[in-house]
Each structure stands twice: as C-alpha cells, then as structure tokens.
Amino acid sequence: MVNPQMVMYEEEFNQIQNVVDRLVKDANAKVVFIVDKNGQLIAASGDVDNLDTTSLASLTAGNIAATGGMAKLLKENEFATQFHEGEKANIHIQLVGNRVILVVIFDSKSSLGLVRLRVRRASEELNNIFEALLKKVADPGADSPFAEITDEDIDNLFND
C-alpha cells in the first residue's frame, strides 16, 4: 500500500464528537468542524444543517496546504493558526498536531479571545485522541472491511 490509510473508529469518533460539541458551547460558536489535511470532513457540530461542510472541508484543507507552502518558502515550520474576519461571520482555523484542522465559525456572540482560549484546550484533547487513533491504525491486527471485496462488488457500483 502506497498510502497509510486514515481510519476512524466508533470509540475515537465519539470522543472527537464530544470535544467538538463542547467547543461549540464553550466558545459560543456557530459551527465547529474537523477536517483532515486532505480535505475530508471528520466531525462537525453546531448549526451545520445550512452549511455545505463538504465544500468547506476541501477549501479549508486547500487553504492550510497553501499557507503551509508559504511557510516552507519562508523557512517557517508551519502557520498553525489562521483567522479570517468577516462582517458577520469569523473563522478561526487551527492546525492540530500537524495532522488535522480544527475550524471554528463564530459571530458577534463570541470573541476571538474566547475562541482562542477554548481552541487551545480542545486542541490538546484532540491531539491525544488522534495519537491514540494512529497507534490503533498502525496495529496490523485491525482488519479492513475491503480485504474481501470482489471484482463483482466493484462492478456493481457502476451498474446504474
């Protein structure tokens, strides 16, 4: 396998979901979500129903990748935090453990100071969870549900 896979299990997912749920409340945020560096949405919380989280996830990852590229040119390690201020909505983006991206969207009901403070704590928790997750994934005992798929399974996907 060329690529190590990113895997999410129920146990860790619930832990992560708890952290984002709490962060929405503690930071008075509208929406909180977590994306991996390739743009795939891992968890979301808050007022997400009217939000295109898939698109946001991809653009967030693109944004982090682009600033990461800028950092490299400046011989910086990484710009771990970004903040975009809008008229109504603000967006705070935090790289966690150089692996996943924590995004907080908030309005005037909150403040940058509060968001920063709460994000710091959430980041530490998330970092621990993802570290544990990675160890689990590296364990060859974990079976892939795809080890057994047949050509037929794959062909069936395209039969409509």
């Binding site: 896979q5 990113m6 129920e10 991996d36 795809f146």
Partner: peptide, 15 residues
C-alpha cells in the same frame, strides 16, 4: 490517502 470511517460507514478517496 483513503479515509475509512467505521462510524459513518463510509470510505473517502481522492482522485
């Protein structure tokens, strides 16, 4: 890097 999510029961791939 494909992403297998056992919780959401989905697999994500990038092309």
């Amino acid at each position: 890097m494909s992403f297998i999510n056992y919780m959401a029961r989905e697999i994500n791939c990038k092309i």
